[in-house]
């Protein structure tokens, strides 16, 4: 099964081609050019070099957020365009989960994935690693670094920090309370490699059902629902 993976949620854009679990090609661009110009040509060139055509793609995997709204929409619109035209399904993958899959997946390791959400907040999810695969400990959420620190301390484990929010966490967290390590630079941020790996074994859906996960909305939605709930009970 040939999977094309796309990642455009942050500053760098990347694409990868997988034959089942084996990565055949990987391409990344981090020169500040808009993903709208760079992402699709990377996919096109890789396929060409592999002697394949877009019609050979069995499914597309794409990071669906959290991340830059505009960046996400570029990746998702391309995934939708390809899958709609090919009548092939698509897998939307959490950016944070893709980050974990692309990280140092050593068994027993605790992974803290964090993207800078400004004002002392991060988009975050926690994972542990079992059998070489990340296993979720939390949902994706927007959380203050202070709240995150309480959770990390409570688990009494050393954590590896991943993502463009890793350094922010490293600098902000009270390291006398919690042991944290910065993941090595090449493994630190999300990439199409992580997206492709995270998509393995996940169910693919028709292109029309693929939606971005802007994340902040779900938090706002939760607050709205909580408020409605409170109103209805009083």
């Amino acid at each position: 099964m040939l999977t094309l993976a796309l990642e455009s949620s942050a500053k760098a854009a990347s694409a990868a081609v997988f034959e089942d679990e084996k990565m055949l090609a990987f391409s990344i661009q981090n020169a500040g050019l808009t993903h709208s110009r760079t992402l699709l040509p990377m996919a096109e060139d890789m396929l060409k070099n592999l002697g394949k055509t877009p019609a050979d793609i069995d499914r597309v995997a794409v990071s669906r957020g959290p991340g830059s709204f505009t960046g996400l929409r570029i990746g998702l619109a391309e995934a939708k365009g390809l899958c709609w035209a090919l009548e092939k399904p698509v897998v939307g993958v959490s950016t944070l989960e893709a980050m974990a899959w692309g990280g140092p997946v050593l068994d027993g390791q605790m992974l803290c994935c964090a993207m800078d959400a400004r004002r002392g907040q991060v988009y975050n999810a926690l994972f542990t690693v079992e059998g070489g695969k990340p296993v979720r400990l939390t949902e994706d959420r927007a959380i203050s670094i202070a709240e995150l620190e309480i959770e990390l301390v409570a688990r009494q484990e050393p954590w590896i920090l991943l993502g463009d929010g890793a350094e922010l966490c490293f600098d902000t967290l009270d390291r006398s309370q919690v042991t944290v390590f910065l993941a090595p630079e090449p493994l630190r941020v999300q990439s199409a490699r992580g997206v492709g790996l995270a998509a393995m074994g996940k169910e693919a859906v028709p292109a029309g059902e693929l939606l971005p996960q802007y994340l902040r909305l779900s938090q706002a939605e939760r607050e709205r629902l909580a408020k409605l709930e409170k109103e209805s009970t009083t």
Partner: peptide, 19 residues
């Protein structure tokens, strides 16, 4: 710009896929 981007990226991917 954010609106045009959606149509452009959908269209160019579809064109590529359809050849």
């Amino acid at each position: 710009i954010g609106a045009v981007l959606v149509g452009v990226n959908f269209a160019k991917s579809a064109a590529l896929a359809l050849g």
